[in-house]
């Protein structure tokens, strides 16, 4: 599903965020990416959504080489992916419902089905009763869940989360992780970057460990 071949990302200042990465993630797999901050976790995830472009190597998603994707095609790649951003990127000028609605508007969904889609997504993350609330009044955990609802509302085949448990206490973090696991169980390919090793102690899933831009065994 997701394949990295000799992928490197070197920033203009000469710093190697990723160095010769080879990687293969099967469809429906759930994978954790760990490492210290600055190890290249975020860069790895951003490469998949073509938010960053690799300086060397090739990345393919469902057989499509995205390292050489034309700018006009990039939006359609991103629609296949649900991204939970590290800094949430919620829009504070609209309520919870409209935040989740945005991906559906962008993809041009039929107006008659969007409302039920949005409510289904909000229900999955337990925010159904807050659909009219403005995001500014939500707690950190609620914002995280809102971000997840927005990432899954258009039913992407790949779900990517960058530090989704960042500032949450351990109980809340396990809650969030359980949500991702539920998506994995219905066949979504899930990638989660986290520095929180304690969360991964009893996981059965693959863990990719990044150290200074390289994959450790």
């Amino acid at each position: 599903m997701i394949q990295f071949k000799h992928v490197s990302k070197r920033f203009p200042d000469g710093y190697f965020a990723l160095n010769n990465i080879d990687l293969n993630i099967a469809a429906g797999e759930m994978v954790y990416v760990t490492g210290h901050s600055g190890a290249g976790k975020s860069t790895l995830l951003k490469l998949i959504a073509a938010i960053e472009r690799p300086t060397a190597g090739s990345i393919s998603i469902s057989g499509q080489n995205i390292a050489q994707l034309k700018p006009g095609i990039v939006p359609f790649l991103r629609r296949k992916i649900g991204f939970v951003f590290q800094d949430h990127k919620l829009l504070f000028d609209r309520n919870v419902f409209d935040n989740v609605l945005l991906p559906l508007q962008i993809s041009g969904f039929d107006n008659r089905v969007v409302a039920s889609r949005v409510r289904a997504a909000l229900d999955k993350v337990g925010l159904l009763k807050k659909e009219k609330v403005m995001p500014i009044t939500l707690s950190g955990g609620e914002r995280q869940r809102l971000c997840i609802a927005r990432a899954v509302v258009h039913r992407p085949s790949i779900l990517i989360a960058d530090e989704p448990t960042g500032n949450l206490d351990i109980a809340y973090a396990r809650d969030i992780m359980a949500m991702f696991y539920a998506f994995h169980q219905v066949g979504v390919t899930v990638l989660i970057a986290t520095h929180d090793v304690a969360l991964l102690e009893d996981t059965r899933h693959r863990i990719l460990s990044l150290q200074q831009g390289k994959l450790a065994a």
């Binding site: 629609r79 992916i81 991204f83 990127k89 829009l91 945005l102």
Partner: peptide, 10 residues
């Protein structure tokens, strides 16, 4: 913000 987020989600 809206433009940036919109671009990010396709």
């Amino acid at each position: 913000d809206e433009i940036e987020v919109s671009k990010l989600i396709g």
